[in-house]
């Protein structure tokens, strides 16, 4: 197993005081708390910090940990020293360590268990019967999948507890049916797919939060779809019928004469599906053809002569 540098994890030196440790823990717990953190691996970091604090806040555990010496590197292959017995080392009163972390997330690392035995929290061994934990995860789908609905296969880690309350993790493949019209941030509940209960306790549930990947053409605003539609100056000026992509395929859109950049045109019912489906909005963006030939330049010059206008008129006084 890997050696864990609890001081490094908490950003502390080996001679940190108890109050340094407490402050560092509180700061890091806020930073990595899975309910507020947007850091990658927040949950894993939070567990790691909780475990480090569990050891460093406890004088006896810290002394035992310090006894291993300062020459170990994080990640180095580690075996507890021969004759290591924390229970005796800590004195008869301490007995077998059962960590009671302030942070209640999950189980301790192998490293922690090899040194101090038991696990974090330890609630699984205390009660005869209790329901399984609810599990939470995220599932990323494409916008097309959100529009059409999809069945996705997922690998879910399943932690089961043996008679001694020791966790044993395996993976399980689940087919997750995602109905059409889901929105980012919505939760899907898979009943009974969470953690295994203890004794007669029921299985927990699995909650998956929907995340929709960025799409190159479309943006989603609640139920509506927005796309930016490039048009030529003459299509905008004279009006035209153009082909617009939607999630359900191409449709024809009539651009009225005298349209402008930024104008929103609505394609009713072409947004995300639902009892009342959303709409798609095409936001016009006038783009010009670069004049590369003499003829093209002459045409632009003619337009300048024929249609002199000042688009910056309203800027007036500020110019």
């Amino acid at each position: 197993m890997e050696y864990k540098d609890y001081y490094k994890i908490m950003g502390l030196s080996r001679n940190a005081t108890a109050s340094d440790i407490k402050t560092a823990y509180r700061k890091l717990a806020r930073k990595y708390h899975p309910d507020v953190s947007k850091e990658a691996n927040a949950e894993a970091k939070f567990k790691e910090v909780g475990e480090a604090y569990e050891v460093l806040k406890d004088e006896q555990k810290r002394a035992a940990y310090d006894q291993l010496g300062a020459n170990w590197q994080a990640g180095q292959d580690f075996r507890a020293p021969p004759g290591w017995d924390y229970a005796n080392h800590a004195g008869a009163g301490a007995g077998r360590a059962r960590a009671e972390s302030d942070a209640g997330f999950g189980s301790a690392s192998d490293f922690f268990e090899s040194l101090f035995g038991g696990g974090l929290g330890g609630r699984h061994r205390r009660e005869q019967s209790m329901p399984g934990e609810d599990l939470h995860g995220k599932i990323q789908i494409t916008l097309e999948d959100a529009f059409n609905g999809v069945v996705r296969q997922m690998q879910i880690p399943i932690t089961e507890y043996d008679q001694n309350g020791r966790p044993n993790t395996t993976t399980k493949t689940l087919n997750v049916k995602i109905p059409k019209g889901v929105k980012a941030g919505q939760q899907i509940r898979l009943s009974g797919q969470g953690g295994t209960g203890i004794g007669s306790g029921k299985k927990g549930d699995l909650y998956l939060e929907i995340d929709i990947a960025k799409h190159p053409l479309f943006e989603v605003m609640d139920k509506d779809i927005i796309c930016h539609l490039p048009v030529t100056p003459w299509e905008a000026a004279l009006g035209a019928t153009v082909t617009v992509p939607t999630l359900a395929g191409k449709v024809e859109l009539k651009i009225p004469a005298s349209s402008q950049t930024g104008q929103k045109l609505r394609l009713k019912g072409r947004g995300m599906p639902g009892t009342t489906p959303g709409d798609q909005y095409a936001i016009l963006k006038i783009v010009i053809e670069q004049p590369t030939t003499e003829n093209a330049k002459a045409l632009y010059e003619k337009m300048a002569q024929e249609m002199p206008f000042n688009p910056r008129e309203k800027m007036g006084a500020y110019q």
Binding site: R26, A29, H33, D35, V36
Partner: peptide, 9 residues
């Protein structure tokens, strides 16, 4: 979330 925030922080 509120329960965890209460317990952890």
């Amino acid at each position: 979330s509120a329960l965890r925030l209460q317990r952890d922080l």
